[in-house]
Amino acid sequence: MGSRVEVERRSVMDHPPRVRALKRMLGVVADGMDPVVDLWRPYVDGLDNLPADGRVLLVGNHTQMGSAETFLIPYAVRRQLGVRVRPLADRQFAQMRGLPSDLMAAYGGVIGAPETARELMQHDQTVLVFPGGGREIPKFKGEEYTLRWQGRSGFARVAIENGYPIVPVGLVGGDDVYKPLTPRDSAWGRFSQAMSTRFGGRDDMAIPLLRGVGPTLIPRPERMYLRFGVPIDATTPVGVDAGGWAEWVKRHTQRELERILDDLLGLREADPYRGLNPLSWSRAAQPESA
């Protein structure tokens, strides 16, 4: 019997009836989400940078909990282009079974392996990847909106191999829903890393101490700021070493995404509606094209 990744690769474009039924249900839900999303008034710009055919590799940043960007990026693309985004999930999610696994597949998610990414690109799918993976989600104090891409250049190699343009897409707001209380090198951080290593085999999934509204875990009301950057042509120039080019594309994509995050943080700082204060609705920052 093949590994979970092998099974995922074989079924990346073909799902069993139960998953297809969930996919149709999620499609109906997504079609009715516009009024709900508009109520929260997320800031979204750069949609004109998306190729009209949807053939693109979106490269994003993970925020605390990993939920805002996982929902808002596919939602914005679907609303703009009418296409389904296929997120590449951390290999850790390969351990999921039953309904959670079916829901991930129905949503479009696949295990983030080179084989599955290549197959999606061979079918001209819109692909979304977070190179930091699951380790970029748990943020300790001082790590907000930082990218943890050490050694992660596989997305660049796959884009180059398949002639896929890369669009960096940054989200700000998700790291402020909860406030981390301690840095990674604190007593709690060291303890949490030790527990992560003991029970999960890796220390980069340590869990920070967080708080939301006041001393509680109620999420803070925060506006989300999303920007799609200028496409990056991953075509290898004539005479350039393939390995070196992949590393350059990775570094360039990371720099562009970090620049987007810095710009959005500045925009957010000056936005009176950043805390979703209804009294500031009329003065909320708007995209230039709005």
Score class of each variant (00 low, 15 high):
residue 204 D to L: 01
residue 161 E to K: 13
residue 188 W to A: 01
residue 189 G to K: 12
residue 233 D to L: 09
residue 119 E to M: 10
residue 180 P to M: 08
residue 121 M to S: 08
residue 116 T to Y: 07
residue 141 K to S: 13
residue 105 A to G: 03
residue 117 A to F: 05
residue 106 A to P: 01
residue 158 V to T: 10
residue 164 Y to S: 02
residue 143 E to T: 04
residue 173 G to W: 02
residue 140 F to E: 06
residue 179 K to Y: 13
residue 232 I to D: 06
residue 177 V to E: 00
residue 210 L to E: 02
residue 112 G to M: 00
residue 115 E to C: 04
residue 165 P to E: 08
residue 117 A to D: 04
residue 159 A to F: 03
residue 117 A to M: 09
residue 101 S to D: 09
residue 102 D to W: 01
residue 199 F to P: 13
residue 162 N to Y: 09
residue 160 I to P: 05
residue 194 A to T: 12
residue 150 Q to S: 14
residue 232 I to N: 07
residue 200 G to E: 11
residue 221 P to V: 06
residue 195 M to W: 14
residue 219 P to D: 00
residue 185 D to L: 13
residue 98 G to K: 06
residue 98 G to T: 02
residue 142 G to T: 11
residue 198 R to I: 12
residue 229 G to K: 07
residue 132 G to I: 06
residue 185 D to M: 11
residue 195 M to L: 15
residue 127 V to L: 04
residue 156 A to E: 05
residue 118 R to A: 10
residue 200 G to P: 01
residue 114 P to G: 05
residue 152 R to F: 04
residue 173 G to F: 05
residue 202 R to Q: 15
residue 144 E to T: 06
residue 230 V to E: 14
residue 107 Y to P: 01
residue 222 E to Q: 14
residue 164 Y to P: 05
residue 110 V to E: 02
residue 213 V to G: 04
residue 198 R to K: 15
residue 125 Q to H: 14
residue 105 A to T: 04
residue 203 D to V: 10
residue 128 L to V: 07
residue 184 R to C: 08
residue 171 L to E: 00
residue 142 G to D: 13
residue 100 P to K: 03
residue 213 V to A: 15
residue 225 Y to P: 07
residue 195 M to G: 12
residue 123 H to W: 05
residue 121 M to Y: 10
residue 144 E to C: 07
residue 148 R to S: 14
residue 101 S to H: 05
